[in-house]
Design a binder for these strands. Structure first.
Lengths: 116, 116
DNA sequence: CTCGTGCGCAACCACTAGTTGCAGGAGGTT
DNA sequence: AACCTCCTGCAACTAGTGGTTGCGCACGAG
């Protein structure tokens, strides 16, 4: 069967949002508009260096864009790419939902048949 | 701010479905009804041992249930728990979507104000 | 009983998330 | 100009994980 949902997702994107720390970083960037490695690490339980590494990953996935201003580098979320990521999550979710419902329907059919 | 979306998700669940191989395994279990480590590895690009390790992770996350039959162990998806996982993905997705739309609305407001 | 097949365990490799420590460069202050 | 501060980047090290190979064991079918 070629309807394998795993084939439809961009693994770089998915693994980028798969990490809990990176999800929280995206969350912070969304609520605060922008941020640097240092300001983000203030609101996270990890060091600045760890945040910097995650920012590299997010940048490679295209989820953030960076603008060097003076001696700091401000990051902010790339709306389009994050929308794509959200769409992929929704795609996987709806696929699984559909299969679960199909299974449920079959189970009910069997149960009804046994009651007759 | 307590609206942090990362606080709402079960990290065990999320990291379980975060791995591409595990997603494909769930997919196979959904389409085929059930499977063992060996039968799953036939349809995957990894060895049986790797699959077995993933099955442990999925089992700990509650996403699959196992029934030993004879000398083999048949795994199948736990519908309720997978539904929970799907719901969490949808939750994160809709939260981000809402924030993106709020940002977009603000941006449009600013642009309109500048044009006046 | 024997053979085959499925499972589990152990050792090993590669990569990633995290840490600490240090060097360097841009900005503001005196 | 000199200095101090603060943010960044690089390097080395640890812990955990996804993956492999190899082996031993047990159970079911012939």
């Amino acid at each position: 069967m070629s309807t394998d949902v795993a084939d439809k997702v961009d693994d770089h994107l998915w693994s980028a949002i798969g990490d809990p720390t990176r999800r929280r970083m995206l969350d912070l960037l969304l609520t605060q508009g922008d941020g640097t490695a240092t300001t983000l690490s203030d609101h996270l339980p990890v060091t600045r260096q760890a945040v910097a590494k995650h920012l590299v990953v997010l940048d490679r996935a295209g989820l953030v864009r960076v603008t060097p201003t003076g001696r700091e580098k401000r990051y902010r979320v790339d709306d389009v790419q994050l929308s794509r990521a959200v769409a992929q999550m929704a795609s996987v979710g709806s696929t699984w939902d559909a299969r679960l419902q199909r299974i449920k329907r079959i189970a009910e059919t069997i149960q009804r048949a046994q009651q007759d």
